[in-house]
């Protein structure tokens, strides 16, 4: 596969029921490309966790996925409140999600750790009051 495929999504904020649509669409498209099932699954889970975070914490945001020779790159960008302490946010079990989100089955403090776990490259930049950008790569091999 020499050509680069680009997918772009806008994730609405505060509409929790729609969170996951982008990840599901990406997953279908990656499957159709004939990529290995475990690669597709890892990319889909990582993106899904990110998409949930965009909906829960950031009032929405945008996702850009590029699939090229050997790698799936996913960039999630938002103009949300930003993360004050990234190291703390990356630790398993730490969450600032309200009880309402927990009652929906999320907010256990596993989102960012999961994204890191399922991706081969994980990079997060965040500025309080400005927003957060996360870049993930999943190797196709």
């Amino acid at each position: 596969m020499a050509e680069v495929i680009t997918l772009e999504y806008t994730v609405p904020g505060d509409d929790f029921t729609r969170a996951g649509e982008a990840s599901a669409d990406m997953k279908s498209r990656l499957k159709k490309l004939g990529l290995p099932a475990d690669v597709v699954r890892r990319a889909a889970i990582a993106l899904y966790e990110g998409e949930i975070n965009l909906a829960i914490h950031a009032h929405g945001g945008c996702i850009c996925v590029t699939v090229s020779e050997g790698v799936i790159k996913m960039v999630l960008a938002d103009k949300g409140p930003g993360i004050e302490n990234i190291a703390l946010a990356m630790s398993e079990g730490y969450s600032t999600a309200p009880d309402e989100v927990r009652s929906l089955g999320f907010g256990a403090g596993m989102g960012l750790p999961n994204m890191k776990k399922y991706s081969d490259v994980f990079d997060i930049e965040s500025t309080v009051g400005v927003g957060t950008t996360i870049q993930m790569e999943v190797n196709i091999s």
């Binding site: 029921t17 599901a24 699954r41 889909a44 899904y48 929906l104 089955g105 999320f106």
Partner: peptide, 15 residues
């Protein structure tokens, strides 16, 4: 016992 669309999303992501 959770009853919302994210249950299906999660199951879908996990195949």
């Amino acid at each position: 016992g959770l009853n919302n669309p994210q249950v299906v999303r999660t199951a879908d992501m996990m195949d």
